[in-house]
Write a protein that binds this DNA or RNA. Structure first.
Lengths: 183, 183
DNA sequence: GTCCACATGTAACTGGTTACATGATTGG
DNA sequence: CCAATCATGTAACCAGTTACATGTGGAC
């Protein structure tokens, strides 16, 4: 039950239309909560029906016509409630680790190439985050909002750093494995 | 499409019944691919129907009676195929980071307590992983299988280390935030 | 003989993904 | 006026979650 709250957050940051939201879910917010445009439109409909957001301009119930939304007080209240409520961490699901464990049983043939590819992807993501950090968080900016958003970005940077290091370590191990395609 | 492969891996490590698998998905495998017993029974049915696994002993189609499975050659082949196939990383979804970003808009009231709770949970998990590392991977054990499994555990340890550090950092930031319940 | 733990399942629901449909606007 | 792009949506499907159902076997 987090997508609606992700959308509320995005709309509080800036009132937007469905497509604008979709674009922002491809960067920024999407870095830790991804969503497709289909999900977003579906959810916008629900949120509007529940009275948490409303369409901005003079009614435009026309298909193909831009429709922007803003958060209503009830929406802000719901987001505050949800943010403060205790939540248990969701169980992990990581395919790459699973594949490594599978490789311990059926052999590592073919896996190495994909590890390299992932390493590359993580390096790119890391570079992107670091660019964002330099652009959006210069030394001066440290209001409460800035600090919190910076903290989130920091998590992204540290996570990507972890993955690149771990993948480098894994590839090094692969290199000195006895039977490269061991049963 | 990873649950069946998680089960195949677990069954290759050791033929098991549904409940035994469930227990192992609460530790070990479950640390990076969790599953409930309902999922597991459903999937065991499918895998058997597809001829990737088979029930072990003299047919026991009795409810409430233990039924163990083993992997068939076709199952092993499918697992090897899947392990080697290129796969794109799945989009991230992290509620805690989302809540922090929401807090930048609606205030941090109430969030701090839950961060502390999460910090505690991650510390416990880290301690558990480290215990497992000492127990299962003493200096001598370094066959190809051991190395691969150790690599997976290493990822778990490093991830929990990252989270504990990040949460400590986040809590420190909270402590010196100007308006503790800033709008 | 009753209770409880072990063991296997069914059913309904929710959230995310994939594929497709449709209208509006703009540049050539 | 045609293609490309912007923009909003529908529908079918799939995986994971939650709630519940049912049977066995041993302890008391």
């Amino acid at each position: 039950m987090s997508l609606p709250h992700a959308i509320l957050t995005a709309l509080l940051e800036k009132p937007s239309s469905g497509l604008e939201l979709t674009r922002r879910f491809d960067r920024s917010i999407g870095y830790f909560w991804s969503a497709t445009h289909q999900q977003i439109y579906r959810e916008l409909g629900k949120l509007e029906a529940e009275g948490l957001i409303r369409a901005l301009p003079a009614e435009q119930p026309v298909r193909g016509q831009k429709k922007s939304y803003e958060v209503l007080p009830a929406g802000r209240a719901e987001l505050a409630r949800w943010t403060a409520a205790a939540q248990d961490p969701k169980p992990h699901r990581d395919t790459l680790l699973l594949r490594l464990r599978a490789a311990a049983m059926v052999g590592t043939a073919g896996l190495e190439a994909d590890l390299r590819r992932h390493l590359d992807l993580h390096r790119q993501q890391l570079a992107e985050y670091e660019k964002i950090e330099q652009r959006d968080f210069p030394p001066g900016k440290d209001s409460a909002q800035d600090r919190l958003q910076h903290l989130v970005l920091r998590a992204g940077i540290d996570l990507e750093t972890f993955w690149t290091q771990w993948l480098e370590h894994a590839l090094a191990e692969f290199a000195e494995l006895p039977g490269r395609d061991a049963k």
